[in-house]
Amino acid sequence: MKLTLHIWRQKARSNKGGFQLYTLADVSEHMSFLEMLDVLNEELVVKGEEPVHFEHDCREGICGCCGAVVNGEPHGPKSGTTLCQLHMRHFHDNDEIWIEPFRSKAFPILKDLIVDRGAFDRIIQVGGFIAVRTGSAPDANGITVSKESSDLAMDAAECIGCGACVASCPNGSASLFVSAKLSHLGLLPQGQPERLKRALAMIRTAEAEGFGYCSNYGECEAVCPKRIGIHHIARANCDFHKASFMVYQGTGGKAAVG
């Protein structure tokens, strides 16, 4: 098939970006979206032009590297999938495709379609873990977890940290990402001791990073490649309310959390 592509090109973070027009003839329907971009890049390199930079790695939908907004939808038109797993059979001959980076104040553009998602790491660093010293764990079957809790936790734990939730949210909120981690750890008995402290620290950090708030639009859930549900956001809110008034913050005052 033949395609017309409008791709966002931006040399570096501080440069101004804009759309550039490309056309591709002979795109196979069995190609993945990224392979289609590979073909374009091959043409550009042979011409001596700089190829379109996009982040990618595993190309099987699990590493969370790839992602762009394709025709107005993060990861493109197919639900429950990452861009690398989107195949060209979902497009038609002579289609016009707009490709732009995930846009968020907290995700500055580094080059073309590559954004810096370091904010996600910083959110995890303030509490997205269960603190356990290497070698100090009890026997694994000493902790029993109901299958229901375990399955729900796993649903949340499937998050690949791609940032599509942020990209899709009209408010640029990272609530789905944050709450998925809070649910994953908060639903397991191992995660209880730090549960409230964790919620407070992670939610506050997300805000400080410049993400918006949750208006319960549900758009994040609709574009999430792992179909993580917004019911996790409700659970996170609940923990945050409790944490705000119930976490013992020490006698010294406010900054005991995080």
Binding site: F129, I130, V132, T134, G135, S136, A137, P138, D139, A140, N141, I143, T144, V145, S146, K147, S150, A153, M154, A157, H184, L185, L188, Q190, G191
Partner: peptide
């Protein structure tokens, strides 16, 4: 064996049987 213990303690949601065991 220590690895499994360590990972479960960290909150790795390994599959479980209905009785709650791994």
């Amino acid at each position: 064996n220590n690895i499994i213990d360590q990972c479960v303690a960290q909150g790795v949601p390994f599959a479980r049987d209905y009785d709650g065991h791994l």
